[in-house]
Design a protein around this nucleic acid. Structure first.
Length: 933
DNA sequence: CAGCAAACGTA
DNA sequence: CGTACGTTTGCTGG
């Protein structure tokens, strides 16, 4: 590289770290261990952006030290009066230095000097060598360094907006050429450094004097001839100005520990980047980092050291090849990976890509045996699912469906579904690393295979990172993966896909054993083998089966709700005199609180201003009787319902049924969640909402829908876990729980409890499960805090063991670091010991709730497995369709109703052995609405 | 076009 | 200042 092409980037690390810190909210950038990373994040991003856009050949980061500098020694108050460094900033400078180290960018410090002096020294050397330089600093002292070859990037607000200053720009902005900036600053003073200047002299006066006399030294020499008040002030402040002059001037000839030439930019140290970015939980930045450096150093190899040999994937072309392969591996577990159709990956929006990914077809199954040694290429076999001969297909089907032949997968339900679309059934799954990963860290949201592999094995899932896979390495000029087609043994599957599936399968074996060691330590193996994996099989069937809906009923509802929407909108517009988007909280704020002048007193606020949620609207209605509010709320209700109807209509499959997907690894408590569409939040509370449930119907060939739900399961678990005798007695007596509790709390007979009293204790009982406070209760019940506290005291007086339990569960969780359900499902809550009060209290409420909500989830999961087994045992054709946390919906085959009902009640009630009975209510009907009871 | 905030449906 | 979720809409900022 020729000298002319050299470009130095020199960054004042401290000042930019501070800018980054104030530009990004610390609370949004925290690792699970509580370390704030907002400054690190912003700084790293900025650094990458500079490398990408400015193309420097050399980079230096300059940092201050904590020790005093020569400036402090000559002026004690130097930088005095600065606010204390915020708590959240602590440790972030060290992390930034670690990032620099991983990127092999030098971080330079010099004892007794500031970062600015280091910057000045490198700039001076670069100038001498004829290099171009870009300074990045938020400190104005750096202005003096600007020349034609040396520009300054100065952040104007935060770190996203920057100005690049050349000499002309400096002069335009500060009225003096760069070299004279110290003269100007000496006269004006610098409040950030606690350096007072001449009173009443601002940049304009100072610039005028400098133009007249040439320098501040000359101004002082001629101070006598300057008239007026400012002249007097100047003469009085000569000592200050002289001191400023001395302190402002940057040192340009420091002894620095690193030569300019040695600051050359080189590719990052991947071995250092990976663990550091793991710890910082920077995943997106990591990707961007490697992209930026790959673009910068196309020839360099940024990939990790190969961790083993790439599996050799052979494509089976005959049944014999498959049967031989299976015979070779006897009955040992084989990992299973699918090659999917990737043609949807280039769709324009994320929503479309996600949709395509969900529906992508399986093109091949790759079977991978456990490897003996990582250095020896494992022999894997790919079986095409398209254009394969019938014999091969049936040989594969036989292996897949045999429960006695063990398979390892990541996301069994997903693989099972894609295979089912091809008419294949997958059984005998002994490991699903998705679920294992979840059981270990239930509050993590993303269990992508590659992430689990990185985290638990520290390995790569990229074929290019394995010996023998060099041809798959992504080169910068990329685009040419198509060139890797040798031939196309399986339509739509390129060589790289096969290699990827091979690596995936190979890693499944190692990930499985690593996760199992963890599971064993947590005593969670039973949960995996006896609960979650069997449940996954059932969920898969439920998802494939779906639930029938009446398109006609949905269509009618859509029309009905649409009419309400239009009518209420018209009526609302009439009140305000013009149309508004009633779905825009922002526009509503304007209409409600500016145009209609509704009282804002006591109105809840959110980040964007006054809230417009139902609660607020109802309060406003009570106060003002403004009928706009009525129309708005009608509009809201109808829009929400129509939105649900639309979503359902779009989700109806060709078979006239809706197939939801259950997420088994999302809810941190152990519950399921439902998506695409969500069938766990279909309205039920209002009459209009219930009409939607009426569109869910029994399918053809079946007699009726059956719903079965646990009655008050969470309170029963509370009774069981707390051992509260009064509560246990209530459930054993089979009395109405809330009347029973109300009678005790209010000291009246069970049948004398008023409706109001009953609803109060009901809210209270449910609230306790969520960690309700007296404040929250008072708000919920619209009563005073005192009355709420009174109510709580009275409650705990009668049900003392409940209070003891709630207290103990939190303190135990603090001690252990986790809560546990009755089946031993753990939830880790590191925030229980956080210094941040809000985080800590949130964790405390989660600790109260997790054992209860989680135990209820365990119980219904157990029940589902037992019900499914009992249905099979009795050879019944009836089937489970939906689970809604404490409710199951089944489709009953003709003539089976009585038997199924009996079996349901029996299996659900006996799913757990509690000190209180588990009551189950059953209802039947031709629609979901009618089956409710 | 991606991602956030607000709102609201369920247990 | 009550837990656990998913989806849609409007809007901002890249």
């Amino acid at each position: 590289m020729s000298a002319e092409a050299n470009k130095l980037l020199v960054i004042d690390g401290h000042s930019m770290a501070f800018r980054a810190f104030y530009a990004l909210p610390p609370e949004s950038f925290q690792t699970t261990s509580g370390q704030y990373t907002n400054a690190v994040h912003g700084f790293t991003n900025m650094l990458l952006k500079l490398i990408r856009e400015e193309l420097p050949t050399h980079i230096v980061l300059a940092f201050d030290l904590d020790t005093p500098t020569f400036r402090h020694q000559s002026y004690e108050e130097y930088k005095g009066g600065r606010a204390k460094t915020p708590e959240e900033f602590r440790g972030q400078i060290d992390l930034i230095k670690k990032v620099a180290e991983a990127l092999t960018i030098p971080a330079v410090t010099v004892e007794g000097y500031e970062a600015d002096d280091i910057v000045a020294t490198y700039v001076t050397r670069a100038e001498a060598a004829g290099w171009e330089t870009l300074i990045v600093s938020g400190d104005r002292d750096a202005l003096q360094l600007v020349t034609e070859n040396t520009k300054l990037m100065y952040p104007t607000s935060g770190i996203s907006k920057v100005t690049v200053l050349d000499p002309a720009a400096v002069e335009a902005k500060y009225l003096v050429p760069p070299a004279k900036y110290p003269d100007l600053a000496a006269l004006v003073g610098e409040s950030a450094d606690n350096l007072p200047g001449v009173p009443k002299v601002g940049p304009k006066t100072a610039a005028k004097w400098i133009a007249q006399y040439g320098s501040t030294r000359e101004i002082i020499n001629n101070a006598a001839e300057i008239g007026g008040k400012v002249g007097e002030n100047l003469r009085a402040a000569v000592a200050d100005v002289e001191r400023n002059l001395e302190l402002n001037l940057l040192v340009r000839d420091l002894e620095v520990p690193l030569d300019l030439e040695d600051a050359v930019l080189t590719p990052p140290d991947r071995e250092a980047v990976e663990p550091l970015f793991d710890a910082l939980e920077f995943n997106q930045i990591r990707d961007r980092l490697f992209e930026v450096f790959a673009a910068r150093f196309p020839e360099a190899d940024l990939s990790a050291e190969p961790t083993g040999a790439l599996p050799q994937v052979t494509v089976a072309s005959s049944a014999a090849e498959l049967t031989d392969f299976l015979a070779d591996h006897d009955d040992a577990p084989l990992a299973l990976a699918l090659c999917l159709d990737r043609s949807g990956e280039s769709l324009s929006t994320k929503a479309k890509r996600d949709e395509a990914a969900r529906l992508a077809e399986a093109l091949a199954v790759v079977l991978v045996p456990a490897y003996e040694s990582p250095d020896e290429a494992v022999q894997a076999l790919a079986v095409p699912l398209v254009e394969a001969d019938a014999e091969l297909e049936s040989a594969l089907a036989a292996w897949l469906t045999e429960p006695g032949l063990p398979k390892l997968v990541h996301d069994y339900k997903d693989a099972g579904k894609r295979l089912a679309w091809r008419g294949l059934s997958l059984r005998g799954v002994v490991e699903d690393t998705l679920i294992s990963g979840y059981l270990i860290q239930p509050d993590r949201r993303n269990f992508a295979f590659a992430d689990l592999v990185t985290q638990h094995l520290g390995a790569s899932t990229e074929p290019g990172d394995y010996v023998g896979g060099e041809q798959f390495r992504k080169k910068n000029d990329d685009g040419g993966q198509g060139t890797l087609f040798d031939e196309e043994p399986i339509p739509g599957v390129i060589e790289e896909d096969l290699a990827r599936a091979g690596v995936h399968g190979m890693l499944l074996h190692s990930l499985s054993s690593t996760l199992h060691a963890e599971l064993a330590e947590r005593k969670a193996e039973q949960l995996l083998y006896e609960l979650e994996i069997p449940l996954a099989e059932i969920l898969l069937q439920m998802e494939l089966t779906g639930i029938a809906v009446s398109r006609e009923k949905l269509q009618n509802l859509d029309t009905e709700f649409q009419r309400t929407i239009e009518e209420s909108a018209e009526a609302a517009y009439a009140v305000v005199g013009h149309p508004v988007n009633l779905g825009s909280p922002k526009q509503l704020q304007t209409v409600l609180f500016e145009e209609l002048q509704l009282p804002t007193q006591g109105v809840k606020k959110n980040k964007t201003g006054y809230s417009t949620d139902v609660e607020t609207l109802q309060d406003l209605l009570a106060k003002t009787q403004n009928e706009f509010l009525v129309h708005l709320m009608n509009h809201r209700d109808a829009s929400k319902l129509r939105q649900t109807v639309t979503g359902l209509t779009e989700a109806v499959g060709d078979d006239g049924r809706i197939h939801t997907t259950y997420a088994q690894t999302v809810a941190a408590t152990g519950r399921l969640s439902s998506l695409h569409p969500n069938l766990q939040n279909i309205p039920v509370r209002t009459a209009a909402g219930r009409k939607i449930r009426d569109a869910f119907t029994v399918g053809e060939g079946y007699e009726t829908l059956l719903t079965a739900d646990y009655s008050q399961i969470e309170m029963r678990i509370m009774a069981h876990l707390s051992g509260d005798q009064a509560l246990i007695e209530a459930f054993r007596a089979g009395e109405d729980l809330h009347s029973f509790v109300g009678a005790r709390v209010f000291g009246v007979g069970t049948d004398e409890v008023s409706a109001e009293q009953r609803s109060k204790v009901k809210a209270m009982s449910y609230g306790l499960v969520y960690g309700l406070s007296s404040f929250g209760l008072s708000k919920q019940l619209n009563i005073g805090v005192d009355e709420a506290r009174e109510l709580m005291n009275e409650y705990f007086e009668r049900f003392g063991a409940v209070r003891d339990y709630l207290r103990d569960v939190v303190s135990q969780a603090k001690k252990d670091g986790y809560t546990a359900t009755i089946y031993g499902r753990r939830r880790y809550l590191p925030d229980l010991t956080s210094d941040n009060r809000q985080l800590r209290q949130m964790a405390e409420r989660a600790a109260l709730n997790a054992p209860i909500q989680g135990s209820a989830a365990d119980i219904i999961k157990r029940a589902m497995i037992d019900v499914d087994a009992a249905l099979a045992q009795s050879q019944l054709k009836s089937r489970m369709l939906l689970q809604v946390h404490d409710e199951l919906v089944l489709e009953v085959a003709p003539g089976e109703r009585e038997q199924v009902e009996k079996l349901l009640v029996e299996k659900m009630s006996s799913a757990a052995d509690l000190t209180v009975p588990l009551d189950v209510h059953v209802g039947a009907g031709s629609t979901w609405h009618d089956a409710a009871h």
